[in-house]
Design a protein around this nucleic acid. Structure first.
Lengths: 235, 235
DNA sequence: ATGAAACCTTGACCTCCGTCAAGTTTTCAC
DNA sequence: GTGAAAACTTGACGGAGGTCAAGGTTTCAT
């Protein structure tokens, strides 16, 4: 049984949290203080435990979810029940938008990777704000266009690159994002495998190969140091 | 009303044609007549021959392209020079948007599949209209959300389904889209292969298998009749 | 209409990597 | 802290499908 802790904005602490929630999200935090306060009134906070499914494929969309604390993984299931990890959301990211515009049902799953705190806004309120503050639309369009570019790139990679390349590119992307040669895999081998279209065993083997070749060093199960980025990307 | 055919060479086309262009695009055709006229003033028409590259990966974005007549294929190149077909644009579709919001350079190629006629709007004008008419933003958001959903689905398929399934699902999608059991492949084996992440040879072989199994009938090189959709999707 | 170029098909080969299995290590709930 | 469950590693095996090649068919520009 889920033990969701739903707050509807009556306590000071919670109002404070919702305000924070809005103020950390790129799509809202460019607004005037008064405007943000108005938006805060139309959100409520929710907290879920590790493993809780926030929405299912097929659920009707109930709104926009903004991650305040914790991480959420978005995944899909194929016909035969295999899971593919689509992306991981962190503080300041949002989801639920896809079904806000055209579809009315979700086409993926959202699951709490640890304890998470979310701010939720209803579909109707969100659309109202988009029309009232056109600048928000531009922010959301920017975010969508980023995601679309990333997803198309990912699809192209899975379709055309070898498994070695895909893994190497994933590591390189992560290193660039974190701006460091020491990276921490944000997920299990199984999830990573499903993300780049291979099997957990293959991930283990390839990482071992990379290490033998002197391109990386595995420090822990999750921590990796990249020693020779160029060689890695030449595979 | 639809007397505005061809005749726009490489320079500006007739006002009539540009008007048509705007009136067939879902993101604009919901506007009032006067508003559309205003937008028409800020577009110009262009025509390109078969095979012409409309924009290159790395080009700086010069604006929004709306397809008036003909078809345009969007593709990417991998490191090793392999091509992946991302999607095919038809009359009423638009492209160039990705680089309109965040990136300033294109990350893919656009090529005319036959003679095409386009209407072009500058990046600045487009952004101005988005702010002036918030309803346009909602339309574009809807279009983006569709594309994102489609692309994520595609990525998940390539990552997790067998080649048979991917081809079968592609045929099924096409049949549903066209609402008929007789479908015409909109592209060559090579392009289809790159789209679903396999090789042209494998496409030939699988289609032959499907035919032997009695699930489809190949009428011409491009025309296919689906005989047993259920069997096809059970692969 | 006609030749050249692009496209499609079929065969043979062979490699990559997915799957199963068994053992080890790490994580997590109590 | 402790035991159970989840996650990871390594090995062996087999099959799906990529690649190369050669020959037939369609398309297209002139």
């Amino acid at each position: 049984m889920m033990t969701a802790n739903v707050n509807c904005g009556h306590s000071n602490g919670t109002a404070e949290m919702q305000k924070m929630c809005i103020s950390i999200v790129p799509i809202f935090n460019h607004l005037e203080q008064a405007e943000m306060n108005e938006i805060v009134k139309h959100t409520h906070s929710v907290s879920y435990p590790r493993g809780h499914t926030i929405y299912h494929e097929g659920d009707t969309s109930d709104g926009l979810y903004i991650i305040h604390k914790g991480r959420v993984k978005i995944y899909r299931l194929s016909e035969n029940g295999k899971e593919q990890l689509v992306r991981i959301l962190e503080s300041g990211d949002f989801t639920g938008e896809l079904s806000l515009f055209n579809e009315t049902v979700h086409d993926a799953y959202a699951e709490a990777m640890g304890k998470v705190e979310l701010c939720v806004m209803s579909r109707d309120d969100f659309q109202k704000f988009l029309l009232k503050y056109p600048a928000i639309s531009l922010k959301v369009l920017g975010e969508f266009s980023n995601r679309l570019a990333k997803t198309e790139k990912q699809a192209a990679r899975i379709a055309m690159e070898t498994t070695d390349s895909r893994l190497a590119m994933y590591l390189a992307d992560l290193a660039e994002e974190r701006n460091s040669d020491r990276i921490n895999l944000p997920m299990t081998r199984k999830d990573l495998a499903s993300h780049i279209g291979t099997s957990p065993e293959t991930i283990s083997r390839k990482l071992a190969e990379f290490e033998d070749a002197g391109w990386i060093r595995q420090l822990g199960q999750r921590e990796i140091e990249i020693l020779d980025m160029d060689a890695l990307l030449l595979i």
